[in-house]
Amino acid sequence: MMNIIKKFFSNQPSSKNIAKERLQLVLVHDRSDCSPELINRIKSDIMKILSEYVDINEKEFDIEITRDRQQGSSKSTLVANIPINRLERIR
């Protein structure tokens, strides 16, 4: 009975929602079927090319390859988040 009352007044999300959120997060990483080495090479190449045009924020440069499953087939997507400091490159 005490347990029920405790639960009644608790503001915590149900444990299954915690489970679901944790799973969704961990699967984003699991599903990226790319080696860190390859990611780093892609990252540095993109950085090199983009730097010729704009001034990018190298610290917050983030790229990721994720695999999304859609009933029977899966496709990979490259997601990049590249903050730009200045639009025009200072030379």
Partner: peptide, 8 residues
């Protein structure tokens, strides 16, 4: 709400 459902 303490176990993942089939839909989840």
């Amino acid at each position: 709400g303490d176990m993942l459902s089939i839909d989840d």
